[in-house]
């Protein structure tokens, strides 16, 4: 295609837009919302890797998000570690806990897996909520530091924090992109398609499912750590099932099992719900039916819908071209 709307150009344009948008908007509040949307989308990318590309719907994802946030919080506030060290260690702690949970959870499949992980998520919530001496219980954890200065670069303004989060988000998306487009990604997709077939092709499904699970907790952990450093106050509610189902909604609306689904879904819903805030909880009266319709008519969300239309269009044009050529020849 010789148009300027190639995939590469579109991506570059979007990245440029993301970098200049603070100057266009000139609005602190929107900057705050955009920063949050970036953070959520990282977590949703993690969920997508596991649920979308490997076929295992984990409902413990908000739990791992909270583990990432609390790890950062506790390491900086209680253990008084330096910010950057804590920021590195937090996702690692999340992954270690993720490994143990994964080993057990992956003995189940399909809805049993979903139910099992839902329980794990709730247990994580209970632990955070009840383990007062460690987590501060319902009072939460306050005074989490913003990212420490790196040389001359400081992160104490909303703008610099936005850029920091944006860069981490882009790196995470790049990681997911590379994973999905590698042999590892193909392996995950083969497992999602049929574990029986994957095994018969010599793929160690157990090992690869665990890898996908742990990777998904890594992204949840990174998102959680960013959240902690950005909001600087965390409470047990960030591990609650409402957050979990927010993640899931973002993913389903954007497009489960698609590369751009998480970012599309997260930004769309976060921005929409900001604009519909005057409706309070009646928003759900709009979202509920819309979500149901979307799942019925486009199981792969908005991105899936666009992709399908695009492929149909391409098939039609190539068929027309062939016809024309046949007539000429």
């Amino acid at each position: 295609m010789s148009s300027i709307f190639t995939k590469k150009n579109t991506v570059i344009a979007l990245i440029v837009l993301a970098f200049v948008i603070p100057f266009v908007l000139q609005n602190q509040y929107y900057l705050h919302v955009l920063t949050l949307a970036c953070i959520w989308s990282i977590a949703v990318y993690g969920l997508n890797l596991l649920a979308g590309f490997t076929g295992y719907l984990s409902l413990a994802h908000a739990g791992f998000f909270a583990i990432g946030a609390y790890s950062l919080g506790l390491l900086t506030v209680k253990a008084e570690l330096s910010f950057w060290l804590a920021f590195l260690v937090a996702p690692i702690i999340t992954m270690i806990i993720g490994t143990f949970v994964g080993i057990i959870a992956l003995r189940t499949k399909e809805h049993f897996f979903a139910i099992y992980t839902l329980c794990v998520g709730y247990i994580i919530y209970l632990i955070i909520d009840k383990w007062d001496s460690l987590t501060g219980g319902v009072r939460g954890l306050i005074g989490i530091p913003s990212p420490a200065n790196i040389g001359p670069i400081s992160f104490d303004t909303p703008l610099s924090q936005y850029y920091f989060v944006l860069v981490v988000t882009l790196l995470c998306i790049l990681m997911v992109y590379r994973i999905v487009h590698s042999l590892t990604g193909r392996t995950f997709i083969a497992i999602r398609n049929s574990e029986e077939l994957a095994l018969s092709l010599g793929i160690s499904t157990a090992k690869n499912k665990l890898l996908s699970f742990v990777l998904s907790t890594f992204f949840a952990g990174v998102a959680g750590a960013l959240y902690g450093s950005f909001i600087r106050f965390i409470g047990p509610e960030i591990s609650y099932t409402t957050i979990m189902f927010d993640f899931l909604t973002y993913l389903i609306v954007g497009g489960i099992g698609t590369l751009s689904g998480p970012i599309v879904g997260t930004f769309l819903i976060v921005l929409l719900s900001q604009n519909l805030q005057f409706l309070q909880d009646y928003r759900m009266l709009i979202f509920g039916p819309l979500l149901t319709l979307l799942i019925i008519f486009s199981p792969r969300g908005i991105v899936g819908f666009v992709l399908t239309k695009y492929h149909q269009h391409q098939r039609k044009t190539s068929a027309v071209l062939k016809d024309a050529r046949a007539k000429e020849g």
Partner: peptide, 28 residues
């Protein structure tokens, strides 16, 4: 039990995966 929503070619590529060694670090 092929993957219906992918191309024939993409379905077959993973068939040779067992003869390869690259892991997710190689991917990243």
């Amino acid at each position: 039990n092929l993957f219906e929503m992918a191309t024939v070619f993409d379905n077959v590529v993973v068939g040779h995966r067992l003869r390869t060694r690259s892991n997710f670090f190689d991917a990243i």
